[in-house]
Design a protein around this nucleic acid. Structure first.
Length: 437
RNA sequence: GUGCCCAUGGUGUAAUGGUUAACACCGGAGUUUGUGGAACUCCUGAUACGAGUUCGAUCCUCGUUGGGCACCCCA
C-alpha cells in the first residue's frame, strides 16, 4: 500500500517535512564570523568622521515615498523599479529608503539645521533598500556610510572635503590601489543645453547605436556617455564633450575642486563620461574604485538644488556614500584580515557543584576588575572545560575544585607554558592581573 | 524587469529511477569521573518547497522560494 504512506498525515514526527523560512531575496544575515570586518569598518568610519568633524545622524529606515520621488527623480530606475513601498494601516505612503541623502536633506529642513553654524557636516551608517536583482556587490538591503556637507555656500573646498573623507576611510581600511574618477555634470542652466546638444548629435546616429542607447536617447541621454557597447564607442568618442559644454561657473568650480584634490595629493582621473543616476546631482560627481573591482566602492557629488526641491531655502550641499558590503568584499579579496580581538583573558574551570557556584560569583569580581573571563558552565568535566579554554585561546585557566573552595584558594594555570600555581582566593584577582600583563 | 547557471546534514563534497543517501570538517558524548593542544571510539544531523511523469523520484519535467553571474542600473 505505498499510496497510503504518502498521505498527508505525519507518519512520525521525524518524517514530517517542515517549512523553512529563508531570508528575503537579496537580504543577508551578518553572522558572527563576519562581524569583525563590520566592526572594523564601523570604527574606521567613525574615526574618520570624528577627525573631519562630521556629526553622526540617524534617520528612519522609511520616509514619505514622495520624498524620494522628488529628490531622486521619477524617471530614475531607483524610483521607477527599485523602491520598496511599505504597506501599513492607515493612509501612510511610506517607502524604505533607497539612499540617505534625501532623508538628511529632509532632516536639515525639518529641524532647522540651517540655524547651526554652516556648513553642517553629517555622517551616517545604516541599511538602504532597493528592489534589484541581486548580483555581485549588489543587494536589496545593503549598508552605506556617508558624509554630507550642507550649507555654507557653494564652495569647492566642501566637494574636496566630502571626497577626502570617503577616500581616507577606504585608505584607513587598508584598501590599496584606489582609483578616483571625477567629472562635472553642470548646473541647471548649462546641463539642459548640453543634453539638447547630445540628443541632437545622437539623433543623427540613432540607427547605428545599440538598443539600450536608443532607449536612453529618449529617457536619459547622459547615460549614453557611459555605454560600454562597442557599437556605440565610435559615436561616443565623437560626441560633444560635456566638459566643453558646461558654463563658466561650473567649469571654474570643477577647476577649483581639482586644485584642492591636487593640494591634498589625492590621485584622480577626469572622466568626462562619468554621469550619475540621481536627479539631484549637479556640478561635481565622483566615484572611487578599488583596483580590480569594476563597481564603485564610493561615489557621490554635489546637490545644490536638493534642499530647494524639498521645500527648503536654496542651500548647497555635497556628499559621498560608501557601499559597505563592497568594502567588505574588497577587504576579503585582498586578504585584509579582520583584526582579532586579541584580548588577554582567563578561562574559569570548576570541578563540582560548590566550585561551580563559587565560579559564578567570581566572574563578577573579574568584571569589576575589568578582566575578560570566559567559562563553560554546562560542561562539568574538567577535561572538556580545559579543551574549550584551549580552543578559546585563553591565556590563563583558573581552576577551582572542591579542595580549593575549602582552602579558599585557586589554581592559576598558564596555558602557554603549562606552569601552574595555587594562590589564595582573595589574592586571585591581582595574581591573574599580574600574569595577564 | 530580462537572460544563463545552481539548490544533498551547520560547512565543503560524493552517490543513485528501486531496501539503512556516503565522506571530511564542525558540533555533541566519551576513552576507569582533578588538568587543554594529539590519537581513538561512539552519536546528532540532509536530498529547499509544491505539483506532475512513474509500480517506484533525491535523481526526469514544471512551478515557487532562495543562491550565483551578466544586462539594465547602481553603493
Amino acid at each position: 500500500m505505498p499510496k497510503l504512506i504518502k498521505s498527508k498525515e505525519p507518519q512520525t514526527a521525524k518524517k514530517q517535512k517542515k517549512f523553512q523560512f529563508q531570508s528575503p531575496k537579496g537580504m543577508h544575515d551578518i553572522l558572527p564570523a563576519d562581524q569583525p570586518w563590520w566592526d572594523k569598518i564601523r570604527k574606521v568610519s567613525r574615526d574618520t568622521a570624528e577627525f573631519y568633524n562630521f556629526l553622526r545622524i540617524d534617520t528612519p529606515m522609511m520616509e514619505d515615498q514622495d520624498l524620494f520621488t522628488i529628490a531622486v527623480g521619477t524617471d530614475t530606475d531607483i524610483i521607477e523599479k527599485e523602491m520598496f513601498y511599505v504597506k501599513s494601516r492607515g493612509k501612510d505612503r511610506y517607502a524604505l529608503r533607497p539612499e540617505c541623502t534625501a532623508a538628511i536633506a529632509r532632516s536639515y529642513i525639518q529641524h532647522g539645521l540651517s540655524h547651526l553654524s554652516q556648513p553642517v557636516k553629517l555622517y551616517y551608517f545604516g541599511p538602504m533598500f532597493r528592489h534589484e536583482q541581486p548580483q555581485a556587490g549588489r543587494f536589496r538591503q545593503f549598508y552605506q556610510a556617508g558624509f554630507e556637507i550642507l550649507g555654507g555656500g557653494l564652495d569647492a573646498i566642501y566637494d574636496a572635503q566630502a571626497i577626502l573623507a570617503s577616500y581616507r576611510m577606504l585608505e584607513g581600511l587598508k584598501i590599496k590601489g584606489l582609483l578616483m574618477q571625477v567629472n562635472s555634470i553642470g548646473c541647471r542652466i548649462c546641463r539642459p543645453h548640453y543634453k539638447k546638444k547630445l540628443s541632437d548629435y545622437y539623433k543623427k546616429h540613432e540607427k547605428d547605436v545599440c538598443a539600450d542607447c536608443k532607449r536612453r536617447l529618449k529617457t536619459n541621454p547622459l547615460r549614453m556617455l557611459d555605454c560600454k557597447n562597442t557599437a556605440c564607442l565610435p559615436f561616443k568618442e565623437k560626441s560633444p564633450s560635456l566638459l566643453d559644454s558646461i558654463c563658466v561657473g561650473c567649469s571654474a568650480h570643477l577647476k577649483l575642486v581639482l586644485e584642492y584634490l591636487d593640494e591634498l595629493a589625492l590621485p584622480y582621473v577626469l572622466n568626462p563620461h562619468l554621469v550619475r543616476g540621481l536627479d539631484y546631482y549637479s556640478k561635481t560627481v565622483f566615484e572611487i574604485f578599488a583596483d580590480g573591482n569594476n563597481q564603485a566602492l564610493a561615489s557621490g557629488g554635489r546637490y545644490d538644488y536638493l534642499i530647494e526641491m524639498l521645500g527648503g531655502r536654496p542651500t548647497s550641499g555635497v556628499g559621498s556614500a560608501i557601499g559597505i558590503e563592497r568594502v567588505v568584499e574588497a577587504m576579503k579579496a585582498r586578504g585584509i584580515a579582520a583584526p582579532k580581538t586579541g584580548k588577554a583573558s582567563v578561562f574559569l574551570v570548576y570541578i563540582g557543584d560548590l566550585a561551580k557556584k563559587k565560579t559564578l560569583a567570581l566572574i563578577e569580581d573579574f568584571r569589576k576588575a575589568g578582566i575578560d573571563v570566559q567559562e563553560s558552565f554546562g560542561k562539568d568535566l574538567i577535561k572538556r572545560q580545559m579543551q574549550l579554554a584551549d580552543k578559546a585561546e585563553a591565556n590563563l585557566a583558573l581552576i577551582l575544585g572542591q579542595k580549593e573552595v575549602y582552602e579558599e584558594s585557586a589554581i592559576i594555570r598558564d596555558l602557554k607554558s603549562g606552569a601552574q600555581e595555587t594562590v589564595p582566593l582573595k589574592r586571585v584577582i591581582e595574581e591573574v592581573k599580574k600574569r595577564l600583563k
